[in-house]
Amino acid sequence: SQLLVCETTPLLADPDPTTPDSDLKTLVTLCDLLNRELLLLIGWAKNIPGFSSLSLPDQMALLQSGWMEALLLLVVWRSRGLDEDLEFAENLRLSEVQSRSLGLEELHTPLRRLTHTLREMNINLEELLLLKALALANSDAEVLDCSRAVQTFQETLHEALQDLESSTRPSDSHRVGRLLMTLPLLRQTALAAARCFRRLHTESRVPMNTLFLEMLDAKI
């Protein structure tokens, strides 16, 4: 219930109306959107029960490692009603052809695969939000200040997922496992996404917000 309460309204893309449409403009708009979502995500993480009790270095470590996974899971959720496109925002959808043209092909295919898997499972919002929190909690940060506290944080979320499934789908004992098994592809895709965006900044000079760059650097 707490995760449902602290989920914010999806943001809209905010393209510069004075710039003519181009791939560069779409990328700038996309990165600006992701940066604003990242800001919300940091606020959201603080509302996950147990997160704020972790030490500041551990909060940073989890966010630096898991932020892209959490953001991409929202894209997957928004894209669930579409067959081929990815919906980053209600007014920013990318087809496979557009993604390729923007240099984001490494993202498109695995995100569509993940969308397909979760759609086949008929995943609901409660499950998605728990997966999002678990992706953050299970971020395999290299150095932790207090790994016991992080483990307790993970266990609380895992128990919440188990409670949810045992009360809503008592006959499906494999559902928690199936949901957790979608996380490796999410992690792999998040890393590919971070590399893609870093490359777009260094090689194609796509301007990006300082926070977004700082978090990309922490991820790679």
């Binding site: 800001l39 500041l56 940073m60 966010l63 630096q64 300082t210 926070l211 700082e214 978090m215 650097d217």
Partner: peptide, 15 residues
């Protein structure tokens, strides 16, 4: 933490 000063600030200050 110095390298990641924006995140540090956001988590510390709450704004």
């Amino acid at each position: 933490q110095e390298k990641h000063k924006i995140l540090h600030k956001l988590l510390q200050n709450g704004n």
